[in-house]
Design a protein around this nucleic acid. Structure first.
Lengths: 200, 200
DNA sequence: CACCGATGTTAATGGTCGCTAACATCGGCG
DNA sequence: CGCCGATGTTAGCGACCATTAACATCGGTG
């Protein structure tokens, strides 16, 4: 027990930062930001406690980095998909496919992403919001082209509702094979967004 | 400052318990269970701090009471609506209408209801789960009758996804008049649940 | 009208938690 | 091969927080 303290001393830090973020996402998703202690975060990556401060200036900063990373990733991916698509219909399908893949692949990140923004302090919080908004506007732009004549705030509300549907994955995780779940979410999301809306 | 301590001493307790639960729902929805202190809960209802313990044995018990109440309400209301409906199609519409009204009327409760179950301790937690499951099964039963031949786990997954859509209200609150938002959610939910699914 | 139960108040307590300090170990580089 | 930066470790420290204690006030009731 005390025999080999140096074995895991410096060992294994190929990418500690990323490893911490991954583990933290799981824990935050399960118990919430305030429900997880620094000690637990450390233990989840094999180190214990305050080793975290070698990689992040504090718990808040860790959460901020996590949300910035994921919202950037979503936005960039969304933008790429829209640009690569032939028309609005193809773009919507591409956005749906991308979001579904993300939600199924990283349910913890998706959960934290839309629950914990309130715990990010002001400089970063604005940036995360900006990226989230930019991502949503990709969807809004595509849907508006697909359904001209629909008021912009209705389009926006519809898009956010669709996000709610797609992000619900964590609640029903495992009840279906991932491929089937993906197909289900894709079709439900598509149907919801293309349904006849009020005011048309 | 010290002049009139007795003014608000016993005053105003027509239904403190309900008042506390309502205020607590708002705070828990905003900052999460662990992000709210007893002192804040007290201040939100005009009393300060430990007065809470006259109405609940502890913070945990407060959350448990809240989740039990809302899940009971959903289940009972859902059951009533299904029984009153003429057929499965009418039942689905009634369930949708009820859930939408609830989500728009009490967004904070909806939020806490599907985020904070993890902070409820074991005796009550099981009961909340049971009620949530019973409510979901109302939907599953109706949808299964509407779409025979669909595998039960697909039906269940679809229902939970629809919940995600309907419960997304808090994220887009206020961007649309409540009536319009209600109509939008109703139509999107309906379209999503009746969309052609994989495996049919 | 004295008493009591319901409901509050402030002060104290014990535990937990984020964070800092002080010290150790290792790989790489001059 | 000795030094240094990166990365860990354990021990404390100060703050916060849920809960309890001790004490007050009011309305109603016998």
């Amino acid at each position: 027990m005390v025999s080999e303290p140096e074995v895991n001393a410096v060992r294994a830090a190929p990418n500690r930062r990323a490893q911490i973020l991954r583990a933290a996402a799981e824990l935050f998703a399960e118990r919430g930001f305030h429900g997880v202690t620094i000690e637990e975060l450390g233990r989840a990556v094999g180190t214990s406690g305050p080793a975290l401060y070698r990689h992040f200036p504090g718990k808040d900063a860790l959460l901020a980095a996590m949300l910035l990373e994921v919202s950037e990733r979503l936005e960039a991916d969304g933008r790429a998909r829209v640009h690569a698509a032939a028309g609005p219909a193809a773009a919507l399908d591409a956005l749906l496919r991308g979001h579904v893949a993300f939600a199924l692949g990283e349910p913890a990140l998706i959960t934290v992403h839309d629950r914990e923004l309130g715990n990010v302090r002001e400089p970063d919080r604005r940036e995360v919001r900006r990226l989230q908004r930019a991502y949503a506007e990709q969807w809004v732009g595509v849907l508006a082209r697909l359904r001209p004549g629909l008021p912009p705030d209705v389009v926006r509300a519809a898009v956010h509702s669709a996000f709610g549907l797609l992000n619900s994955t964590p609640h029903s995780a495992g009840s279906l094979p991932a491929a089937d779940m993906g197909a289900l979410l894709f079709r439900m999301g598509r149907a919801a967004l293309l349904a006849p809306f009020p005011g048309e």
